[in-house]
Design a protein around this nucleic acid. Sequence first.
DNA 1: TTGCATCCTGACCGTATGGTCAGCTTTCAG
DNA 2: CTGAAAGCTGACCATACGGTCAGGATGCAA
Lengths: 212, 212
Amino acid sequence: MTESTRPMRRQDIRRENEKAILLAAEKVFAEAGFGGATMQLIADLAGLPKANLHYYFATKEELYRSVVQNIFEIWLQAANCFDVARGPIDGISAYIDAKMEISRRHPDGSKVWASEVMHGAPVLQDYMESTLREWTDGRVAIIKRWIEEGKMDPVDPRHLLYMLWATTQHYADFGHQIETLNGGKPLSDRQWREAKENIKRVILTGIGAQPA
Amino acid sequence: MTESTRPMRRQDIRRENEKAILLAAEKVFAEAGFGGATMQLIADLAGLPKANLHYYFATKEELYRSVVQNIFEIWLQAANCFDVARGPIDGISAYIDAKMEISRRHPDGSKVWASEVMHGAPVLQDYMESTLREWTDGRVAIIKRWIEEGKMDPVDPRHLLYMLWATTQHYADFGHQIETLNGGKPLSDRQWREAKENIKRVILTGIGAQPA
DNA sequence: TTGCATCCTGACCGTATGGTCAGCTTTCAG
DNA sequence: CTGAAAGCTGACCATACGGTCAGGATGCAA
């Protein structure tokens, strides 16, 4: 393909192919769902023969699992913004920004994750019961503290988190709908900025967030 | 099956079978996605031989289309609450209640709709470009009027609508995640009430809604 | 009762898909 | 240079799926 350069090292080959496959898989799984995706389609998009996919990922399930895990990592990383913050304005603003950026940059990943959860999390149930639960409990504790410190109104922390997740992910998962309602065009830079601002403003005002 | 009663009328047979098939299909499509769903599974769940499905619905696509259209109808009906209202507090409250009720009563339908949109609305693109667009434009106009009349802060109407959709549908589409984080149990009546109240409170406060 | 339209279904078919494998080429340590 | 390990792939296979169909069962109008 792009190889007019010298032959690649073994290591590089492995890394590049896995990356290409995962990227292609993410897109195909997002567009067609697990059931609708075919190894052939993924192979074509990755520019590899189908048999080569099975050399790197034994089964379709294994490949799918890798894709979903990748998303989950990214998803969790957005949490950092939350922790460092001194109060709801900092923390929630940063979290919304981070999650909106994920929705914009990794819409396919977001869709695969949504699909996985919608279908009852067949591969990631264990993650949800361990990692996700811990993560959520941690954030709930932070929000509770903010409430106790009078930094925001007494809103149920869980429902607030759901609201944050829902609102930000919507821009990825329902991106096609938004695009259609936007005259068939993707949101512009300006529109993305407006979206973020609107969400932040409504939610921060809505919970009565006070400057730290 | 349940027929210890007299033979059914033709009309009834048709209606009941179509209903059973659509219900089963909704569930299977929701759980497995279009690609993952099989006619055999739907047939089993509906308690009918597979061939009988094809007597009522020629193809899998046709059956799917019927399911998605059904959802879309329900979805649009929730709009009425919006129209009758005098101001944002009435209108948005009622809309949130209606959509939350849909999320609770028709989670499968909601998932199928979400799936359809996530995959680029292959069957319902035309609907989105006509009916949905008109509906949205109408609601945007109403919200704009409310803003002009000083009944709420100048929030971008579209992003507000997305926020309403996202937040309410989240409880259906990501119901499994919420359930997992709720200790593996479905939300109780009380928790559903709390969810509604939280959403309404945050959003109505967030947009600075004034009593009509 | 009769005739017909509707309703039903087991058996079947072509295709597409996930996965396998034997054997090839390429890299690289010693 | 050499041999073994890693990487690659066309051809193949079993299965499962959507869809068909011939013919039987059933409701119903006349």
